[in-house]
Design a protein around this nucleic acid. Sequence first.
DNA 1: CCAGCTGTGAAAATCCTGTGAACGCAGGGA
DNA 2: TCCCTGCGTTCACAGGATTTTCACAGCTGG
Lengths: 265, 265
Amino acid sequence: MIDTDSGFVTVLARRAQAAGWHLSQKTGPVPPRDLVAMKLNALLVDPAVLGDEAWDYLDRVASMLPDLGLVVCTSRSTVAQRVRGLRLGADDWMTKPCHPEEALARLEAVSRRRRRGRQEHEAAPLAAGELEIRPDRFQAFVGDEALDLTRREFELLYLLAEERGQVLEREQIYQRVWGYAMAHGDRSVDVFVRKLRKKLESLSPSWAYIHTHFGIGYRFDPEPAGIVAEEIHPAPEEAQPVPQSAAESQPETPSQAVHNTFTAG
Amino acid sequence: MIDTDSGFVTVLARRAQAAGWHLSQKTGPVPPRDLVAMKLNALLVDPAVLGDEAWDYLDRVASMLPDLGLVVCTSRSTVAQRVRGLRLGADDWMTKPCHPEEALARLEAVSRRRRRGRQEHEAAPLAAGELEIRPDRFQAFVGDEALDLTRREFELLYLLAEERGQVLEREQIYQRVWGYAMAHGDRSVDVFVRKLRKKLESLSPSWAYIHTHFGIGYRFDPEPAGIVAEEIHPAPEEAQPVPQSAAESQPETPSQAVHNTFTAG
DNA sequence: CCAGCTGTGAAAATCCTGTGAACGCAGGGA
DNA sequence: TCCCTGCGTTCACAGGATTTTCACAGCTGG
Protein backbone atom coordinates (compact mmCIF):
# COMPACT_ATOMS: atom_id res chain seq x y z
CA MET A 1 0.00 0.00 0.00
CA ILE A 2 1.45 3.31 -1.08
CA ASP A 3 -0.44 6.16 0.51
CA THR A 4 0.06 9.01 2.94
CA ASP A 5 -3.50 9.48 4.12
CA SER A 6 -2.77 8.31 7.64
CA GLY A 7 -6.38 7.93 8.63
CA PHE A 8 -7.22 5.71 5.70
CA VAL A 9 -4.00 3.79 6.02
CA THR A 10 -4.46 3.11 9.70
CA VAL A 11 -8.01 1.89 9.42
CA LEU A 12 -7.21 -0.28 6.43
CA ALA A 13 -4.16 -1.75 8.07
CA ARG A 14 -6.18 -2.73 11.12
CA ARG A 15 -8.85 -4.40 9.02
CA ALA A 16 -6.32 -6.11 6.84
CA GLN A 17 -4.51 -7.50 9.84
CA ALA A 18 -7.79 -8.70 11.26
CA ALA A 19 -8.40 -10.51 8.00
CA GLY A 20 -5.02 -12.17 8.28
CA TRP A 21 -3.34 -10.26 5.49
CA HIS A 22 0.20 -9.15 5.42
CA LEU A 23 0.20 -5.48 4.60
CA SER A 24 3.21 -3.31 3.97
CA GLN A 25 2.82 0.46 4.13
CA LYS A 26 4.92 2.86 2.12
CA THR A 27 4.70 6.61 1.83
CA GLY A 28 6.50 7.04 -1.46
CA PRO A 29 7.02 5.28 -4.76
CA VAL A 30 8.70 1.91 -4.44
CA PRO A 31 10.89 0.95 -7.38
CA PRO A 32 9.27 -1.84 -9.40
CA ARG A 33 12.45 -3.78 -8.88
CA ASP A 34 11.79 -3.85 -5.16
CA LEU A 35 8.15 -4.69 -5.65
CA VAL A 36 9.26 -7.81 -7.43
CA ALA A 37 11.21 -8.90 -4.38
CA MET A 38 8.21 -8.33 -2.13
CA LYS A 39 6.15 -10.93 -3.95
CA LEU A 40 2.91 -9.08 -3.45
CA ASN A 41 -0.53 -10.21 -4.38
CA ALA A 42 -1.82 -6.72 -4.90
CA LEU A 43 -0.76 -3.12 -4.66
CA LEU A 44 -2.97 -0.25 -3.54
CA VAL A 45 -1.62 3.10 -4.56
CA ASP A 46 -2.66 6.75 -4.39
CA PRO A 47 -1.13 8.52 -7.38
CA ALA A 48 -1.10 11.77 -5.42
CA VAL A 49 1.86 10.34 -3.54
CA LEU A 50 3.73 9.70 -6.75
CA GLY A 51 3.78 13.26 -7.99
CA ASP A 52 4.43 14.00 -11.61
CA GLU A 53 5.58 10.54 -12.49
CA ALA A 54 2.37 8.89 -11.43
CA TRP A 55 1.35 7.70 -14.89
CA ASP A 56 4.82 6.64 -15.75
CA TYR A 57 5.10 4.77 -12.49
CA LEU A 58 1.79 2.98 -12.99
CA ASP A 59 2.85 2.08 -16.48
CA ARG A 60 6.16 0.65 -15.35
CA VAL A 61 4.64 -1.29 -12.49
CA ALA A 62 1.91 -2.72 -14.68
CA SER A 63 4.28 -3.81 -17.40
CA MET A 64 6.97 -5.16 -15.12
CA LEU A 65 4.53 -7.03 -12.90
CA PRO A 66 1.69 -8.14 -15.11
CA ASP A 67 0.51 -10.54 -12.45
CA LEU A 68 0.30 -8.01 -9.68
CA GLY A 69 -3.16 -6.81 -8.75
CA LEU A 70 -2.96 -3.06 -9.16
CA VAL A 71 -5.60 -0.90 -7.51
CA VAL A 72 -5.57 2.88 -7.66
CA CYS A 73 -7.24 4.95 -4.99
CA THR A 74 -7.58 8.69 -5.48
CA SER A 75 -9.34 11.45 -3.65
CA ARG A 76 -10.79 12.88 -6.84
CA SER A 77 -10.50 11.89 -10.41
CA THR A 78 -12.02 12.45 -13.81
CA VAL A 79 -13.42 9.79 -16.06
CA ALA A 80 -10.55 10.37 -18.44
CA GLN A 81 -8.04 9.74 -15.69
CA ARG A 82 -9.74 6.57 -14.59
CA VAL A 83 -9.95 5.29 -18.13
CA ARG A 84 -6.31 6.08 -18.71
CA GLY A 85 -5.27 4.32 -15.54
CA LEU A 86 -7.31 1.23 -16.28
CA ARG A 87 -6.03 1.09 -19.84
CA LEU A 88 -2.51 1.47 -18.57
CA GLY A 89 -2.86 -1.72 -16.61
CA ALA A 90 -4.58 -0.85 -13.37
CA ASP A 91 -7.12 -3.45 -12.33
CA ASP A 92 -9.43 -1.21 -10.36
CA TRP A 93 -9.83 2.42 -9.45
CA MET A 94 -11.51 3.57 -6.27
CA THR A 95 -12.43 7.03 -5.12
CA LYS A 96 -11.91 8.25 -1.60
CA PRO A 97 -13.56 8.36 0.72
CA CYS A 98 -14.20 4.70 0.42
CA HIS A 99 -15.25 2.20 2.98
CA PRO A 100 -12.28 0.10 4.08
CA GLU A 101 -14.32 -3.04 3.85
CA GLU A 102 -15.01 -2.34 0.20
CA ALA A 103 -11.37 -1.57 -0.41
CA LEU A 104 -10.46 -4.94 1.03
CA ALA A 105 -13.14 -6.66 -1.03
CA ARG A 106 -11.84 -5.04 -4.19
CA LEU A 107 -8.26 -5.95 -3.38
CA GLU A 108 -9.44 -9.46 -2.75
CA ALA A 109 -11.32 -9.59 -6.04
CA VAL A 110 -8.29 -8.35 -7.87
CA SER A 111 -5.93 -10.91 -6.35
CA ARG A 112 -8.44 -13.69 -6.76
CA ARG A 113 -8.55 -13.06 -10.44
CA ARG A 114 -4.77 -13.06 -10.51
CA ARG A 115 -4.62 -16.44 -8.90
CA ARG A 116 -7.36 -18.01 -10.95
CA GLY A 117 -5.40 -18.64 -14.10
CA ARG A 118 -2.77 -20.51 -12.19
CA GLN A 119 -3.66 -22.98 -9.55
CA GLU A 120 -5.97 -25.98 -9.74
CA HIS A 121 -3.48 -28.23 -11.40
CA GLU A 122 -0.56 -28.36 -9.02
CA ALA A 123 0.11 -31.76 -7.61
CA ALA A 124 -0.37 -33.54 -10.88
CA PRO A 125 2.72 -35.64 -11.58
CA LEU A 126 3.85 -35.64 -15.18
CA ALA A 127 5.52 -38.45 -17.05
CA ALA A 128 7.71 -37.79 -20.06
CA GLY A 129 10.07 -40.24 -21.62
CA GLU A 130 12.07 -41.79 -18.81
CA LEU A 131 11.23 -38.84 -16.66
CA GLU A 132 8.76 -38.45 -13.86
CA ILE A 133 8.07 -34.97 -12.59
CA ARG A 134 6.56 -34.79 -9.14
CA PRO A 135 5.28 -31.45 -7.92
CA ASP A 136 4.73 -32.88 -4.47
CA ARG A 137 8.48 -33.22 -4.11
CA PHE A 138 9.56 -30.34 -6.32
CA GLN A 139 11.70 -32.92 -7.99
CA ALA A 140 12.05 -34.99 -11.12
CA PHE A 141 13.09 -38.63 -11.17
CA VAL A 142 14.48 -41.12 -13.62
CA GLY A 143 13.60 -44.44 -12.16
CA ASP A 144 14.13 -43.79 -8.48
CA GLU A 145 17.01 -41.40 -8.88
CA ALA A 146 16.34 -37.71 -8.38
CA LEU A 147 17.67 -35.10 -10.76
CA ASP A 148 18.49 -32.96 -7.76
CA LEU A 149 16.82 -29.88 -9.19
CA THR A 150 16.78 -26.55 -7.47
CA ARG A 151 13.50 -24.74 -7.14
CA ARG A 152 13.88 -22.61 -10.22
CA GLU A 153 15.09 -25.54 -12.24
CA PHE A 154 12.11 -27.54 -11.19
CA GLU A 155 9.64 -24.81 -11.96
CA LEU A 156 11.10 -24.28 -15.37
CA LEU A 157 11.02 -27.96 -16.13
CA TYR A 158 7.48 -28.30 -14.86
CA LEU A 159 6.26 -25.38 -16.91
CA LEU A 160 7.86 -26.71 -20.06
CA ALA A 161 6.53 -30.19 -19.42
CA GLU A 162 3.04 -28.89 -18.79
CA GLU A 163 3.07 -27.29 -22.21
CA ARG A 164 4.66 -30.29 -23.81
CA GLY A 165 4.89 -29.98 -27.55
CA GLN A 166 4.34 -26.25 -27.57
CA VAL A 167 7.01 -23.76 -28.39
CA LEU A 168 7.22 -21.25 -25.57
CA GLU A 169 8.80 -17.88 -26.08
CA ARG A 170 11.47 -16.78 -23.66
CA GLU A 171 9.41 -13.86 -22.44
CA GLN A 172 6.52 -16.12 -21.72
CA ILE A 173 8.68 -18.60 -19.88
CA TYR A 174 10.32 -15.94 -17.83
CA GLN A 175 7.02 -14.32 -17.02
CA ARG A 176 5.50 -17.55 -15.79
CA VAL A 177 8.47 -18.93 -13.89
CA TRP A 178 10.01 -15.79 -12.47
CA GLY A 179 6.72 -14.00 -12.06
CA TYR A 180 7.64 -10.71 -13.64
CA ALA A 181 8.57 -9.30 -16.99
CA MET A 182 11.90 -10.28 -18.48
CA ALA A 183 14.42 -7.52 -18.84
CA HIS A 184 15.75 -7.05 -22.33
CA GLY A 185 18.84 -9.14 -22.79
CA ASP A 186 18.30 -11.38 -19.80
CA ARG A 187 19.82 -14.81 -20.38
CA SER A 188 18.55 -16.54 -17.28
CA VAL A 189 16.22 -18.80 -19.20
CA ASP A 190 19.05 -20.01 -21.39
CA VAL A 191 21.26 -20.67 -18.43
CA PHE A 192 18.62 -22.67 -16.66
CA VAL A 193 17.85 -24.64 -19.77
CA ARG A 194 21.49 -25.57 -19.93
CA LYS A 195 21.44 -26.68 -16.31
CA LEU A 196 18.36 -28.74 -16.92
CA ARG A 197 19.82 -30.33 -20.01
CA LYS A 198 22.94 -31.23 -18.14
CA LYS A 199 21.03 -32.92 -15.34
CA LEU A 200 18.64 -34.60 -17.73
CA GLU A 201 21.48 -35.88 -19.81
CA SER A 202 23.30 -37.30 -16.83
CA LEU A 203 20.39 -39.48 -15.81
CA SER A 204 18.61 -40.04 -19.11
CA PRO A 205 21.27 -39.75 -21.78
CA SER A 206 19.34 -41.45 -24.53
CA TRP A 207 16.50 -38.95 -24.60
CA ALA A 208 16.29 -35.40 -25.83
CA TYR A 209 13.78 -33.41 -23.85
CA ILE A 210 14.26 -29.71 -24.46
CA HIS A 211 14.47 -28.43 -28.00
CA THR A 212 15.66 -25.00 -29.03
CA HIS A 213 13.68 -22.92 -31.47
CA PHE A 214 15.98 -20.30 -32.81
CA GLY A 215 14.79 -16.77 -32.32
CA ILE A 216 11.79 -17.91 -30.33
CA GLY A 217 12.35 -20.06 -27.29
CA TYR A 218 12.14 -23.68 -26.23
CA ARG A 219 9.89 -26.67 -26.60
CA PHE A 220 9.65 -29.67 -24.31
CA ASP A 221 9.10 -32.94 -26.10
CA PRO A 222 10.74 -36.15 -25.03
CA GLU A 223 12.28 -37.91 -27.97
CA PRO A 224 14.53 -40.91 -28.05
CA ALA A 225 17.78 -39.28 -28.99
CA GLY A 226 19.19 -42.28 -30.78
CA ILE A 227 18.20 -40.78 -34.10
CA VAL A 228 20.74 -38.06 -33.92
CA ALA A 229 23.31 -39.63 -31.67
CA GLU A 230 23.68 -42.54 -34.00
CA GLU A 231 26.93 -44.03 -35.15
CA ILE A 232 28.76 -41.16 -36.66
CA HIS A 233 32.21 -42.31 -37.55
CA PRO A 234 34.53 -41.19 -34.76
CA ALA A 235 36.42 -38.06 -35.69
CA PRO A 236 39.82 -39.28 -36.79
CA GLU A 237 41.91 -36.37 -35.62
CA GLU A 238 40.62 -36.75 -32.10
CA ALA A 239 43.00 -38.87 -30.17
CA GLN A 240 41.14 -40.68 -27.46
CA PRO A 241 43.72 -42.11 -25.15
CA VAL A 242 41.23 -43.54 -22.73
CA PRO A 243 38.14 -44.92 -24.38
CA GLN A 244 35.82 -44.46 -21.49
CA SER A 245 33.14 -46.86 -20.50
CA ALA A 246 30.19 -47.04 -22.80
CA ALA A 247 27.98 -45.31 -20.33
CA GLU A 248 29.94 -42.06 -20.35
CA SER A 249 31.38 -41.15 -23.67
CA GLN A 250 29.96 -39.68 -26.88
CA PRO A 251 32.32 -36.74 -26.75
CA GLU A 252 31.90 -36.24 -30.46
CA THR A 253 28.17 -35.96 -30.55
CA PRO A 254 27.71 -32.31 -31.31
CA SER A 255 25.38 -31.35 -28.55
CA GLN A 256 24.04 -28.60 -30.69
CA ALA A 257 22.87 -31.04 -33.28
CA VAL A 258 20.97 -32.85 -30.60
CA HIS A 259 19.38 -29.77 -29.22
CA ASN A 260 18.62 -27.86 -32.33
CA THR A 261 15.88 -30.07 -33.55
CA PHE A 262 13.78 -27.47 -35.17
CA THR A 263 11.70 -29.85 -37.12
CA ALA A 264 8.94 -30.60 -34.76
CA GLY A 265 8.71 -34.30 -35.17
CA MET B 1 -24.52 -7.71 -21.06
CA ILE B 2 -27.60 -8.31 -18.99
CA ASP B 3 -29.46 -5.06 -18.44
CA THR B 4 -32.77 -3.39 -19.27
CA ASP B 5 -31.71 0.22 -19.04
CA SER B 6 -32.10 0.84 -22.75
CA GLY B 7 -30.28 4.16 -22.74
CA PHE B 8 -27.22 2.74 -21.10
CA VAL B 9 -27.32 -0.40 -23.16
CA THR B 10 -27.59 1.46 -26.43
CA VAL B 11 -24.75 3.82 -25.75
CA LEU B 12 -22.52 1.06 -24.50
CA ALA B 13 -23.34 -1.16 -27.42
CA ARG B 14 -22.39 1.56 -29.84
CA ARG B 15 -19.08 2.21 -28.12
CA ALA B 16 -18.31 -1.46 -27.85
CA GLN B 17 -18.93 -1.99 -31.52
CA ALA B 18 -16.75 0.95 -32.36
CA ALA B 19 -14.02 -0.66 -30.31
CA GLY B 20 -14.44 -3.85 -32.27
CA TRP B 21 -16.02 -5.92 -29.51
CA HIS B 22 -18.68 -8.44 -29.93
CA LEU B 23 -21.46 -7.58 -27.52
CA SER B 24 -24.55 -9.62 -26.82
CA GLN B 25 -27.48 -7.95 -25.07
CA LYS B 26 -29.90 -9.82 -22.84
CA THR B 27 -32.75 -8.51 -20.77
CA GLY B 28 -33.05 -11.35 -18.32
CA PRO B 29 -30.91 -13.89 -16.50
CA VAL B 30 -29.09 -16.27 -18.81
CA PRO B 31 -28.51 -19.74 -17.38
CA PRO B 32 -24.83 -20.22 -16.52
CA ARG B 33 -24.95 -23.28 -18.73
CA ASP B 34 -25.66 -21.07 -21.73
CA LEU B 35 -23.04 -18.56 -20.71
CA VAL B 36 -20.44 -21.27 -20.97
CA ALA B 37 -21.45 -21.91 -24.56
CA MET B 38 -21.15 -18.24 -25.40
CA LYS B 39 -17.46 -18.22 -24.56
CA LEU B 40 -17.51 -14.72 -23.20
CA ASN B 41 -14.61 -12.68 -22.02
CA ALA B 42 -16.66 -10.72 -19.58
CA LEU B 43 -20.21 -10.29 -18.38
CA LEU B 44 -21.77 -7.00 -17.35
CA VAL B 45 -24.91 -7.46 -15.29
CA ASP B 46 -27.40 -5.30 -13.43
CA PRO B 47 -28.75 -7.33 -10.52
CA ALA B 48 -32.00 -5.39 -10.66
CA VAL B 49 -32.86 -7.43 -13.71
CA LEU B 50 -32.33 -10.64 -11.83
CA GLY B 51 -34.91 -10.05 -9.15
CA ASP B 52 -34.78 -12.01 -5.92
CA GLU B 53 -32.28 -14.52 -7.13
CA ALA B 54 -29.63 -11.96 -7.93
CA TRP B 55 -27.17 -13.10 -5.27
CA ASP B 56 -27.74 -16.71 -5.99
CA TYR B 57 -27.29 -16.07 -9.70
CA LEU B 58 -24.05 -14.16 -9.22
CA ASP B 59 -22.80 -16.93 -7.03
CA ARG B 60 -23.58 -19.61 -9.54
CA VAL B 61 -22.10 -17.68 -12.44
CA ALA B 62 -18.95 -16.90 -10.51
CA SER B 63 -18.41 -20.47 -9.44
CA MET B 64 -19.35 -22.10 -12.72
CA LEU B 65 -17.29 -19.73 -14.84
CA PRO B 66 -14.22 -18.85 -12.83
CA ASP B 67 -12.51 -17.47 -15.90
CA LEU B 68 -15.28 -15.11 -16.83
CA GLY B 69 -14.81 -11.46 -16.01
CA LEU B 70 -17.85 -10.55 -13.97
CA VAL B 71 -18.79 -6.90 -13.59
CA VAL B 72 -21.85 -5.72 -11.71
CA CYS B 73 -23.50 -2.42 -12.51
CA THR B 74 -26.27 -1.12 -10.27
CA SER B 75 -28.20 2.09 -10.03
CA ARG B 76 -27.75 2.31 -6.28
CA SER B 77 -26.04 0.08 -3.82
CA THR B 78 -24.79 -0.04 -0.27
CA VAL B 79 -21.27 -0.81 0.80
CA ALA B 80 -22.49 -4.07 2.25
CA GLN B 81 -23.99 -5.09 -1.06
CA ARG B 82 -20.87 -4.26 -2.98
CA VAL B 83 -18.71 -6.11 -0.54
CA ARG B 84 -20.98 -9.10 -0.72
CA GLY B 85 -20.95 -9.10 -4.49
CA LEU B 86 -17.19 -8.78 -4.74
CA ARG B 87 -16.70 -11.52 -2.16
CA LEU B 88 -19.08 -13.71 -4.06
CA GLY B 89 -16.85 -13.60 -7.08
CA ALA B 90 -17.67 -10.41 -8.94
CA ASP B 91 -14.57 -8.74 -10.33
CA ASP B 92 -15.82 -5.20 -10.28
CA TRP B 93 -18.85 -3.22 -9.21
CA MET B 94 -19.88 0.02 -10.88
CA THR B 95 -22.60 2.45 -9.96
CA LYS B 96 -24.87 4.10 -12.51
CA PRO B 97 -24.80 6.54 -13.93
CA CYS B 98 -21.37 5.69 -15.19
CA HIS B 99 -19.51 6.89 -18.22
CA PRO B 100 -19.61 4.26 -20.96
CA GLU B 101 -15.94 4.77 -21.66
CA GLU B 102 -15.12 3.89 -18.08
CA ALA B 103 -17.38 0.87 -18.25
CA LEU B 104 -15.48 -0.35 -21.28
CA ALA B 105 -12.16 0.32 -19.61
CA ARG B 106 -13.22 -1.67 -16.57
CA LEU B 107 -14.47 -4.54 -18.68
CA GLU B 108 -11.21 -4.43 -20.54
CA ALA B 109 -9.20 -4.46 -17.34
CA VAL B 110 -11.19 -7.40 -16.09
CA SER B 111 -10.72 -9.47 -19.24
CA ARG B 112 -7.10 -8.51 -19.57
CA ARG B 113 -6.20 -10.30 -16.38
CA ARG B 114 -8.16 -13.30 -17.39
CA ARG B 115 -6.13 -13.61 -20.53
CA ARG B 116 -2.75 -13.13 -18.94
CA GLY B 117 -2.32 -16.54 -17.49
CA ARG B 118 -3.22 -18.21 -20.72
CA GLN B 119 -1.91 -17.88 -24.20
CA GLU B 120 -1.23 -14.34 -25.20
CA HIS B 121 -2.42 -14.70 -28.74
CA GLU B 122 -4.91 -17.04 -30.25
CA ALA B 123 -3.18 -20.23 -31.23
CA ALA B 124 -5.57 -20.76 -34.08
CA PRO B 125 -4.00 -22.98 -36.71
CA LEU B 126 -4.68 -22.01 -40.30
CA ALA B 127 -5.20 -24.40 -43.16
CA ALA B 128 -4.48 -23.45 -46.75
CA GLY B 129 -4.16 -25.84 -49.61
CA GLU B 130 -1.89 -28.64 -48.48
CA LEU B 131 -0.53 -26.35 -45.84
CA GLU B 132 -1.15 -26.23 -42.13
CA ILE B 133 0.14 -23.24 -40.23
CA ARG B 134 0.50 -23.78 -36.51
CA PRO B 135 1.26 -20.80 -34.31
CA ASP B 136 1.79 -23.05 -31.31
CA ARG B 137 4.87 -24.41 -33.04
CA PHE B 138 5.83 -21.34 -35.01
CA GLN B 139 5.91 -23.67 -37.93
CA ALA B 140 4.03 -24.71 -41.06
CA PHE B 141 3.49 -28.28 -42.12
CA VAL B 142 2.62 -30.22 -45.23
CA GLY B 143 1.34 -33.50 -43.97
CA ASP B 144 3.64 -34.11 -41.04
CA GLU B 145 6.70 -32.54 -42.56
CA ALA B 146 7.74 -29.13 -41.31
CA LEU B 147 8.74 -26.37 -43.69
CA ASP B 148 11.54 -25.50 -41.29
CA LEU B 149 10.68 -21.82 -41.26
CA THR B 150 12.63 -19.25 -39.32
CA ARG B 151 10.76 -16.86 -37.13
CA ARG B 152 10.53 -14.08 -39.67
CA GLU B 153 9.52 -16.47 -42.37
CA PHE B 154 6.83 -17.87 -40.18
CA GLU B 155 5.47 -14.51 -39.20
CA LEU B 156 5.36 -13.34 -42.77
CA LEU B 157 3.58 -16.49 -43.85
CA TYR B 158 1.14 -16.25 -40.98
CA LEU B 159 0.32 -12.65 -41.73
CA LEU B 160 -0.27 -13.35 -45.39
CA ALA B 161 -2.36 -16.40 -44.61
CA GLU B 162 -4.43 -14.50 -42.10
CA GLU B 163 -5.31 -12.01 -44.81
CA ARG B 164 -5.82 -14.71 -47.38
CA GLY B 165 -7.10 -13.38 -50.65
CA GLN B 166 -6.15 -9.81 -49.87
CA VAL B 167 -3.42 -7.95 -51.62
CA LEU B 168 -1.08 -6.49 -49.03
CA GLU B 169 1.25 -3.65 -49.81
CA ARG B 170 4.90 -4.05 -49.02
CA GLU B 171 4.87 -1.19 -46.54
CA GLN B 172 1.96 -2.74 -44.76
CA ILE B 173 3.57 -6.14 -44.62
CA TYR B 174 6.83 -4.76 -43.37
CA GLN B 175 5.10 -2.65 -40.77
CA ARG B 176 3.17 -5.59 -39.38
CA VAL B 177 5.89 -8.22 -39.47
CA TRP B 178 8.94 -6.17 -38.64
CA GLY B 179 7.08 -3.83 -36.34
CA TYR B 180 8.44 -0.59 -37.68
CA ALA B 181 8.34 1.46 -40.84
CA MET B 182 10.03 0.16 -43.93
CA ALA B 183 13.02 2.12 -45.15
CA HIS B 184 12.80 3.34 -48.70
CA GLY B 185 14.20 0.79 -51.04
CA ASP B 186 14.23 -2.07 -48.57
CA ARG B 187 13.86 -5.42 -50.33
CA SER B 188 13.53 -7.62 -47.28
CA VAL B 189 9.93 -8.49 -47.98
CA ASP B 190 10.80 -9.66 -51.47
CA VAL B 191 13.66 -11.74 -50.21
CA PHE B 192 11.52 -13.41 -47.59
CA VAL B 193 8.78 -14.09 -50.07
CA ARG B 194 11.33 -15.85 -52.20
CA LYS B 195 12.49 -17.95 -49.25
CA LEU B 196 8.91 -18.86 -48.45
CA ARG B 197 8.16 -19.78 -52.04
CA LYS B 198 11.20 -21.98 -52.17
CA LYS B 199 10.25 -23.85 -49.03
CA LEU B 200 6.62 -24.07 -50.03
CA GLU B 201 7.57 -25.38 -53.43
CA SER B 202 9.82 -28.04 -52.03
CA LEU B 203 7.08 -29.58 -49.93
CA SER B 204 3.96 -28.66 -51.85
CA PRO B 205 5.07 -28.29 -55.48
CA SER B 206 1.65 -28.52 -57.04
CA TRP B 207 0.23 -25.48 -55.31
CA ALA B 208 0.84 -21.78 -55.76
CA TYR B 209 0.42 -19.89 -52.53
CA ILE B 210 1.93 -16.45 -52.82
CA HIS B 211 1.06 -14.26 -55.78
CA THR B 212 2.83 -11.11 -56.85
CA HIS B 213 0.91 -7.96 -57.63
CA PHE B 214 3.14 -5.74 -59.65
CA GLY B 215 3.74 -2.35 -58.15
CA ILE B 216 1.74 -3.21 -55.05
CA GLY B 217 2.74 -6.20 -53.03
CA TYR B 218 1.68 -9.79 -52.46
CA ARG B 219 -1.42 -11.86 -52.01
CA PHE B 220 -1.73 -15.24 -50.33
CA ASP B 221 -4.19 -17.58 -51.95
CA PRO B 222 -3.59 -21.28 -52.31
CA GLU B 223 -4.31 -22.42 -55.83
CA PRO B 224 -3.63 -25.71 -57.52
CA ALA B 225 -0.80 -24.70 -59.80
CA GLY B 226 -1.70 -26.85 -62.79
CA ILE B 227 -3.57 -24.01 -64.47
CA VAL B 228 -0.54 -21.91 -65.13
CA ALA B 229 1.99 -24.68 -65.40
CA GLU B 230 0.72 -25.72 -68.77
CA GLU B 231 2.80 -27.34 -71.43
CA ILE B 232 5.60 -24.99 -72.11
CA HIS B 233 8.26 -26.60 -74.23
CA PRO B 234 10.89 -28.10 -71.92
CA ALA B 235 14.00 -26.03 -71.55
CA PRO B 236 16.42 -27.42 -74.12
CA GLU B 237 19.68 -26.83 -72.30
CA GLU B 238 18.53 -28.92 -69.38
CA ALA B 239 19.78 -32.43 -69.80
CA GLN B 240 17.35 -34.86 -68.27
CA PRO B 241 19.15 -38.14 -67.91
CA VAL B 242 16.28 -39.86 -66.19
CA PRO B 243 12.89 -39.10 -67.65
CA GLN B 244 10.80 -39.52 -64.58
CA SER B 245 7.56 -41.41 -64.42
CA ALA B 246 4.58 -39.90 -66.11
CA ALA B 247 2.88 -39.23 -62.83
CA GLU B 248 5.48 -36.69 -61.79
CA SER B 249 6.49 -34.44 -64.61
CA GLN B 250 6.43 -30.67 -65.08
CA PRO B 251 9.91 -30.46 -63.59
CA GLU B 252 11.13 -27.53 -65.62
CA THR B 253 8.14 -25.30 -65.36
CA PRO B 254 9.68 -21.89 -64.81
CA SER B 255 8.68 -21.14 -61.30
CA GLN B 256 8.44 -17.51 -62.12
CA ALA B 257 5.59 -18.06 -64.50
CA VAL B 258 3.80 -19.81 -61.72
CA HIS B 259 4.21 -16.99 -59.30
CA ASN B 260 3.28 -14.04 -61.39
CA THR B 261 -0.37 -14.78 -61.64
CA PHE B 262 -1.97 -11.40 -61.87
CA THR B 263 -5.43 -12.69 -61.49
CA ALA B 264 -6.73 -9.79 -59.50
CA GLY B 265 -6.78 -6.69 -61.58
C1' DC C 1 12.02 0.40 -76.25
C1' DC C 2 12.47 2.59 -71.80
C1' DA C 3 12.01 3.18 -66.93
C1' DG C 4 10.70 0.93 -63.08
C1' DC C 5 9.81 -3.51 -60.52
C1' DT C 6 10.76 -8.00 -59.12
C1' DG C 7 13.38 -12.45 -58.81
C1' DT C 8 17.89 -14.37 -57.58
C1' DG C 9 22.15 -15.74 -55.65
C1' DA C 10 25.66 -14.69 -52.68
C1' DA C 11 28.36 -11.75 -49.58
C1' DA C 12 28.29 -8.99 -45.47
C1' DA C 13 26.41 -7.68 -41.25
C1' DT C 14 23.75 -8.80 -37.43
C1' DC C 15 21.71 -11.46 -34.12
C1' DC C 16 21.13 -15.62 -31.18
C1' DT C 17 22.41 -19.43 -28.38
C1' DG C 18 25.64 -22.52 -25.84
C1' DT C 19 29.03 -22.28 -22.50
C1' DG C 20 32.20 -21.55 -18.75
C1' DA C 21 33.17 -18.69 -15.15
C1' DA C 22 32.84 -14.84 -11.97
C1' DC C 23 29.92 -12.31 -8.81
C1' DG C 24 26.71 -11.37 -5.12
C1' DC C 25 23.51 -12.89 -1.82
C1' DA C 26 21.35 -15.55 1.82
C1' DG C 27 21.19 -19.35 5.04
C1' DG C 28 23.58 -22.66 8.03
C1' DG C 29 27.28 -23.91 10.96
C1' DA C 30 31.33 -23.18 13.61
C1' DT D 1 30.34 -12.88 14.20
C1' DC D 2 32.72 -15.00 10.36
C1' DC D 3 33.15 -18.48 6.92
C1' DC D 4 31.37 -21.83 3.79
C1' DT D 5 28.15 -23.51 0.55
C1' DG D 6 24.41 -23.50 -2.63
C1' DC D 7 21.87 -20.80 -5.80
C1' DG D 8 20.61 -17.39 -9.02
C1' DT D 9 22.35 -13.72 -12.02
C1' DT D 10 25.46 -11.55 -15.08
C1' DC D 11 29.32 -11.39 -18.39
C1' DA D 12 32.13 -12.24 -22.28
C1' DC D 13 33.28 -15.10 -25.96
C1' DA D 14 32.82 -18.36 -29.87
C1' DG D 15 30.39 -20.61 -33.34
C1' DG D 16 26.36 -20.64 -36.02
C1' DA D 17 21.97 -19.22 -37.89
C1' DT D 18 19.46 -15.60 -39.63
C1' DT D 19 18.72 -11.11 -41.82
C1' DT D 20 20.09 -7.50 -44.63
C1' DT D 21 22.29 -5.67 -48.41
C1' DC D 22 23.99 -5.68 -53.24
C1' DA D 23 24.52 -6.12 -57.99
C1' DC D 24 22.50 -7.99 -61.80
C1' DA D 25 19.22 -10.22 -64.82
C1' DG D 26 14.54 -10.92 -66.19
C1' DC D 27 9.83 -9.04 -66.30
C1' DT D 28 6.00 -5.46 -66.80
C1' DG D 29 3.42 -1.84 -68.54
C1' DG D 30 2.98 1.96 -71.22
